[in-house]
Design a binder for these strands. Structure first.
Lengths: 116, 116
DNA sequence: AATTTATATCACAGTGTAGTATTTATCAGG
DNA sequence: CCTGATAAATACTACACTGTGATATAAATT
């Protein structure tokens, strides 16, 4: 596809930005679920993260083990230049397309009516 | 995938809402290109439109021939209930995830810095 | 060893896209 | 009025990339 992001990838990068230095898989998943109300399988996150890293959009480092009842170490992610660019583009594209439609969108429970 | 929309599909539905009764392939394409600055092949639009119609998200009707130097008839699209629901969801998800990040996103030319 | 936290792998369906082709209309010349 | 040229628009094809659930591993603590 090249430079652009899928919808899910967008959400992941947004979660990453939101969480800042505390961005790792499990937490991103919870963040997205909490904010969007949509359920996400664990696997989906990691697959997407790997692909994003493969494209150089994000980078990762392993965290130190924390004494919180054991468990595997966290893998923290950081947004890279190309990822930031792509995210900004997606964000702008969406904003430009949605600009001025706020009301019409929130008020679309049934079908769309062009003008009253 | 079920109910959710891809990024491109979002843009198409947003274009559709924007254009209202004047929403047909060529015009949607121009609208998206004009607003997002990103080039789109003609084929991409129609493939996506067909799939969206297949899912019942939109419906279409053929327009009458117009005397504007000939050419095939336009196919006008309309947003259906399910499509409106899906679009609203996508929109809300994105908004929720991006909420408060406006500044941080616009100001991400290079790489991300969590906090100064 | 059992339990917990977290990430990894797989495989298949769905979406994105460019490139090429086809259809349908009008226009101009004869 | 036919007929070929031209214009406008949509359709088809094929392949790469993304979305996703299911299942499996791994690494740490108790």
């Amino acid at each position: 596809m090249g430079k652009s992001l899928g919808e899910f990838e967008q959400l992941i990068l947004l979660a990453l930005v939101r969480l800042g230095k505390d961005a790792y898989g499990v937490k991103m998943r919870k963040e997205i679920e909490a904010r969007t109300g949509r359920e996400i399988s664990a696997g989906a996150i990691y697959t997407a993260l790997e692909r994003l890293e493969g494209r150089g959009f994000i980078s990762s480092r392993l965290g130190e083990p924390t004494p919180e009842r054991g468990g595997r170490r966290k893998k923290y992610y950081q947004l890279e230049t190309d990822g930031a660019t792509a995210l900004r583009r997606s964000y702008n594209a969406f904003s430009q397309m949605a600009k001025g439609l706020g009301t019409r969108l929130s008020a679309l429970p049934a079908d769309a009516e062009p003008k009253p």
